[in-house]
């Protein structure tokens, strides 16, 4: 088990066992925040930058509290200040330029940026987001960051020899940002690399990126890696060589059909297991989630198990997202109690 996990156990935790409960990151935005954004973008409107900042602060406070109310051990602010996982960062990194939306599918587009010059660190990306959230939260705050491989893959590359070279330069910038976050007090960082699932042959590039990302970061800072929607057999066991404490995997969506991949060879990291589906707008029952948590116990012992949704939940209706988190926490506490009494015995040692 990673030595840095125990710092997230709440004081007065009711059970001897502790299954760390958290989320992946994104959360549905309150509809008034979207209306506020439209007003802010409307040149006719008097809704100015200060008003927009206040609206974002309010949303961040609201969703942070919503996460705490659900009982999660480690929370985020639902990424209320972020629009999209690549755009948000590209706007803050020198060397990027935006030319307009490109199609993803049907009438769904995203502002795919172009790297037109060497990427350089300019303004901080997430320190103010972290400081605000940590200030309004009573629980520890996790910071999700889009990983350099995904930032490189989902951009046009005009300036670098290849995507690999771009990813390494971006990894150095992520490292710089994490240093600033750590100085501000952050102790839990999650690197999101969804692009790895589409190009699993590049797992060594992601590994080298992670080496750069964690360089000089103290051991008491917990580093997780989130990967989703792919054929895990193509990146396992190579994932175990990554210099991270925790691997966060989407598995509920496929009804754990890939769980066995992680049993052989032995899973040596902490496992953050997706126990609720981020793409089904129906709240799983506490009993169902308890069963899902026990799938994780087939892979790692309880002291190495983190419990979270499969992925960011921003596409769900807000009440469904909340219901999933609330049941997730209840289920985790129930499983802890059953482990304490011996009603459940973990498979993995």
């Amino acid at each position: 088990m990673s030595e840095n996990r125990e710092q997230f156990r709440p004081s007065g935790h009711e059970n001897d066992q502790f299954l760390l409960t958290t989320v992946v990151g994104s959360y549905p935005k309150p509809s008034w925040l979207n209306r506020a954004r439209d007003l802010h973008e409307d040149p006719e409107s008097e809704f100015d930058d200060d008003d927009w900042r206040e609206a974002q602060d309010d949303a961040s406070r609201l969703i942070t509290n919503e996460h705490e109310r659900a009982g999660l051990d480690v929370i985020v602010d639902g990424e209320m200040r972020r629009n999209e996982m690549v755009e948000f960062f590209a706007h803050r990194i020198d060397g990027y330029e935006f030319n307009g939306p490109v199609k993803v599918w049907g009438h769904n587009y995203f502002d795919k940026p172009s790297v037109t010059d060497e990427v350089e660190y300019d303004e901080s990306w997430l320190v103010s987001e972290y400081e605000f959230t940590a200030d309004v939260a009573d629980r520890p705050v996790k910071v999700p960051i889009t990983g350099p491989y995904t930032l490189a893959s989902w951009s046009f590359n005009e300036a670098y020899e290849d995507e690999e070279a771009l990813a390494y330069d971006l990894a150095d910038l992520v490292n710089e940002e994490i240093e600033k976050l750590v100085a501000a007090g952050a102790r839990y960082i999650q690197i999101d690399e969804p692009a790895l699932a589409t190009t699993p042959d590049d797992h060594a590039i992601v590994g080298e990126c992670l080496e750069r990302i964690v360089s000089g970061i103290p051991d008491d800072v917990r580093i997780g890696l989130h990967v989703c929607y792919g054929d895990y057999s193509r990146i396992y066991p190579e994932l175990l060589d990554y210099p991270v404490d925790e691997l966060d995997l989407e598995l509920a969506n496929g009804d754990y059909d890939q769980l066995d991949v992680f049993k052989q060879p032995e899973f040596t990291k902490d496992l953050a297991l997706g126990v609720v589906d981020a793409h089904v707008a129906e709240v799983e029952s506490v009993e169902q989630i308890e069963e899902n948590i026990q799938k994780g116990l087939e892979v790692v012992p309880p002291e190495r198990l983190t419990v979270s949704p499969d992925c960011g939940v921003k596409l769900l209706p807000r009440e469904v997202a909340y219901g999933k988190m609330e049941n997730l926490v209840t289920a985790a506490r129930n499983v802890e109690a059953k482990l304490d009494t011996g009603e459940i015995t973990p498979d993995a040692e």
Partner: peptide
């Protein structure tokens, strides 16, 4: 359902 269009971040 929507499926990936070759090795791209596009779906059909």
């Amino acid at each position: 359902g929507i499926v990936r269009y070759y090795d791209n971040n596009n779906f059909y």
